[in-house]
Nucleic acid binder design. Structure first.
Lengths: 359, 359
DNA sequence: AGGTACGGTGGGAGCGCTCCCACGGGTGAT
DNA sequence: ATCACCCGTGGGAGCGCTCCCACCGTACCT
């Protein structure tokens, strides 16, 4: 009686498109051991030049691509990082913000085997899923975009020992590694620009002051006034909340102040849209009656009538640097213990005023 | 002589945050075998209610989360899909398009263990990386956003046996499973709307006619004219290329036509921006002198002055359906051979006119 | 009573890799 | 010449899971 031909598991699994070569097969082809192939593939220096060449040839001939799952299982790492994006009310912050960050992160990851996972956190259910996700150690590290000051995420990450880098500080004493735009300088530039054009009653519409970035922009506004030798009038500071509607209300308030402002520095383009509408409703011309400068330099700024002068942040660069920073944190984490740790990487990036016709 | 205590590999690897429980440990805790725990975790029906409860209790007590890498290795699947986004010149198409698709895809994946991988393909280098990526079978399936007709990607996918779903057809006879907006109907609605407002000389600015969606919008324009009982004047059809600059040039052309058009259906909001600028330069009022309708209903439409009437596509829903379709394709692919295959899922989604003051 | 069927279960084998130990041969010091 | 050392290398063990086969008991047939 013949032994039944089972075909093995691979045949049963119906692997379409042909079987992929394994390390072992590459090793056989190159006439070396598994360990050696592994060393070559992972760029270890402990391989002779001759052997390396032979292995590389075999890899190329066979079209070998390492099996990520096997590697992850054996090495106890995932080669993946997560980008956590809070989905605030009005979609992602200013819309291009998100895609710019993404482009930056991707460009930094391009030369890596590192895989990016996108996690959009809208509601509590999403948060729970994220926690579960992290608990499963499905990523080696985390990038967090615009973290709220009261967010419990950092505690969770610390507990799980997962390295993280955030964009934007939560306070002046941010303990996590961060990358941030120089909001103070940006606001200062905006005010300096307005003052240089002869404006003397420069108002501001602020973002939600529970957000550190908004505080910085306000601080920069004050600095700018001081540097221009202008007196600060607290009545010219209208607090809002980064929304278009908030911008509307704040502008209405400012129009009631006497003497009237002749310029306004709005802490975000979105709020500037609301403010602009109010001015139009009141028959006020921009920039003749009131000069305007926004912040963020979103595509909205270019679309406005007149096009809005705005402070540009290097968002793509921020994304890139976040990723680079996380990568080096990860490399550090796998270093032997006892190696002296450098201080937390904290990067403050320059902002730039983009002058248009609104000022 | 005492045997040296090595501490094992785990200790050496410095697993921060404590070790995670394995299937085996859950099995021991629940007093069952490994196989049974696996069945419970994977929702197999072949488990008694009593046993299931016991296992679930053990899972909860231990906080067990399956190791994704181990699962992927053993089961020869990744539980991941890729979203391939071509990065066309002007960032991502219309910017919100991308994030809306993403939201939709994510919402469909929320109830799944499926992981989303983002692949932005800009240059040839990115393409090569994507090919290498797919060759490594690092995803179970692929979602492709706005595929060009001459893209070699589908061939590669077919060769590798990787299921795919695309957004937008490449031609009337798209062989791949697709999800698309009803461009014909949208354009027809736009024209009907203009006709209903008394416009009689309705022009159109088309997108690049090598793109099937642009062809559909033009076809819908013709249908709309016919249905309104208007004669089609070929001079009123100005071909462009979905860019702002193209919109400008096309509008210039149309302004030279006699008798002059009294309305224009622009096949994208981006082109409408260009067209609008030309009208302003010529001192023409919208909608008094010329009514305008755009397509895509991007945020640009709302920002325009006057706000642009535009045809909305259910982009988020398209993303959701793409993901759902791919998921069911994947489920089908793992079915035993010989099961009759239903026809390719092809979903045409309704479009909707959003009336604003430009028409 | 004996047989058959089947739902439920346990556990061996194996997925493809990394890690590490052991080993061989060359080199330089003694 | 002898020894110690180190570089380069091979291959065993094991990562945590899925798949499958064998097995057990119970229920239902004849």
């Amino acid at each position: 009686m013949a032994i039944r031909e089972t075909g093995g598991r691979n045949a049963a699994r119906g692997t379409r498109g042909g079987r992929r070569p394994t390390l072992e097969e590459v090793a056989a082809r190159a006439g070396v051991g598994r360990g050696t192939v592994s060393r070559v593939v992972n760029g270890s220096p402990r391989v002779s030049e001759r052997t390396r060449a032979a292995v590389e040839a075999a890899v190329a001939e066979l079209g070998y691509v390492p099996n990520r799952a096997a590697r992850a299982l054996a090495a106890n790492r995932t080669d993946a990082i997560a980008l956590v994006v809070p989905e605030v009310e009005n979609r992602f912050f200013a819309e291009p913000y998100f895609s710019d960050i993404l482009r930056g992160v991707n460009s930094a990851l391009d030369d890596t085997e590192m895989q990016l996972l996108l996690t959009i956190v809208g509601n509590d259910r999403d948060r729970a899923r994220l926690a579960h996700y992290l608990a499963g150690h499905r990523v080696d590290g985390v990038l967090v975009v615009s973290l709220r000051a009261d967010d419990p995420l950092p505690d969770l990450l610390a507990e799980l020992g997962i390295p993280a880098v955030i964009s934007g500080r939560r306070s002046a004493a941010e303990p996590l590694p961060w990358v941030d735009a120089d909001n103070v300088s940006g606001a200062r530039q905006a005010v300096a620009h307005l003052a240089a054009r002869g404006r003397r009653r420069i108002a501001t519409i602020t973002g939600g002051l529970d957000i550190y970035g908004a505080q910085c922009r306000l601080a920069g506004y004050r600095d700018g006034l001081a540097e221009a030798g202008l007196v600060a009038d607290e009545a010219l500071i209208a607090p809002a909340d980064f929304t278009e509607e908030g911008g509307r209300r704040a502008m209405e308030t400012l129009l009631g102040v006497t003497p009237a402002p002749d310029a306004v520095f709005v802490a975000s383009d979105v709020m500037a849209v609301g403010a602009r509408q109010v001015l139009r409703e009141h028959g006020l011309r921009v920039p003749e009656d009131l000069a305007m400068v926004g912040f963020d330099d979103t595509s909205i700024a270019r679309q406005m009538d007149p096009p809005l002068t705005s402070v540009r942040q290097p968002i793509e660069e921020m994304g890139r640097l976040m990723a680079v920073t996380l990568l080096s944190e990860l490399a550090r984490a796998s270093l032997p213990v006892g190696v002296p740790r450098p201080p937390q990487p904290q990067l403050l990036l320059p902002t730039e005023l983009v002058a248009r016709t609104s000022s």
